[in-house]
Amino acid sequence: MSSVAVGVRVVERNPVLELGVAALLRGAAGIELVADRAARPVREGGGEEKGDGEEEEGEAAVVVVGLEGPRGLAEVERLAAVHKVVVLAPEESPALLVRALRAGAHAVLAHGHFGAAELAEAVAAAAQSRGYLSPPVATALVDWLHGGSPEAPGRTRGFGHSLTPREAEVMELIARGWSNRRIASELYISEKTVKNHVHQIYRRLKADDREHAVARWRVLGPARS
């Protein structure tokens, strides 16, 4: 880690969790907390005074964000435009973890499954623009992508082989980001027929949604003869 301390700000809606995360970071080598709630003086009449860095988020090189649901993704995206972001998210929501990474997060840790050392390591990685996934997060993502299949992703036949030729054709267009309407126009079929194909694709690939299906398709690949 660089000899220059990395400025870190904790963004968490729950003040108790915010204090807990800050406590893990406080005293860690090479880390300086910005707008530390525990260090803020109390105003006369109650409430906290804002720290010098609280109004100006730019002072923090890395922001640690608690992500409780999809609505927090907009916050991650907003912060990632200025900072390196470390996300704390529930491991039981792998689709949310993927979206957090796409929103700009450099590191993702599973809530309740990390200590001070790992949090500091994730912050250091993010500060250097390196990716970091805690073991529970990595495991959850792999299981999600593989759909619980015992077969390895390097097999000669991927999940695409379980699709009919038409479903595989539709899946290829979905992977390109095409809408159902555009797919229908391209294949000269009705939009309702496309929706039926999409439903079958989800079922065969054991996918939760379009994004999940694309991830499974890209990782495991279409059928190869």
Score class of each variant (00 low, 15 high):
M171F: 11
L96W: 05
A138R: 05
A35R: 01
S225T: 11
A127C: 01
V98N: 04
L187R: 13
R71M: 12
G177C: 09
G20E: 14
F159R: 11
W144A: 08
L163T: 03
T193H: 10
Q128L: 12
E191Q: 08
W217H: 06
R37M: 05
E49L: 15
E75L: 14
H111G: 07
E56R: 09
R13I: 06
E55L: 08
S162Y: 14
G51L: 07
S225P: 08
H197Y: 09
V76D: 06
G104L: 11
V11Y: 01
R99T: 07
S179I: 02
G53I: 00
G20V: 15
R37T: 04
R155V: 10
S3Y: 15
E44Q: 12
R181T: 14
R102P: 07
E18H: 14
N196I: 12
G221P: 02
E32Y: 10
N180D: 15
S3G: 13
L79V: 09
P70N: 00
E167Q: 10
L220M: 11
M171E: 10
F114K: 02
S93F: 15
R40C: 02
P90T: 13
T139Q: 12
V86D: 03
Y132A: 07
L101G: 00
R182L: 05
L163C: 12
R166A: 11
H212T: 01
V6S: 07
G148Q: 02
E18A: 14
S185N: 14
L33Y: 00
N180Q: 13
N14C: 05
R155S: 05
K206A: 12
N196D: 09
R40E: 07
S190H: 06
G66T: 04
L67M: 03
L73A: 06
E75A: 15
A127K: 03
L17P: 02
V64N: 07
R43S: 04
L133E: 03
T156A: 09
I201P: 15
E92K: 12
H199K: 11
R78A: 10
N196C: 04
A215I: 04
K84T: 09
G160R: 04
A117Y: 04
R182G: 02
G72M: 00
S162F: 14
R210F: 08
I189L: 15
P94I: 15
E211G: 03
M1Y: 09
R9M: 06
V214W: 02
V63Q: 12
V137M: 01
K195V: 12
G47A: 10
S93M: 13
A74T: 11
R26P: 01
P90Y: 06
E118M: 13
G158F: 00
V4F: 08
I189T: 07
H146G: 13
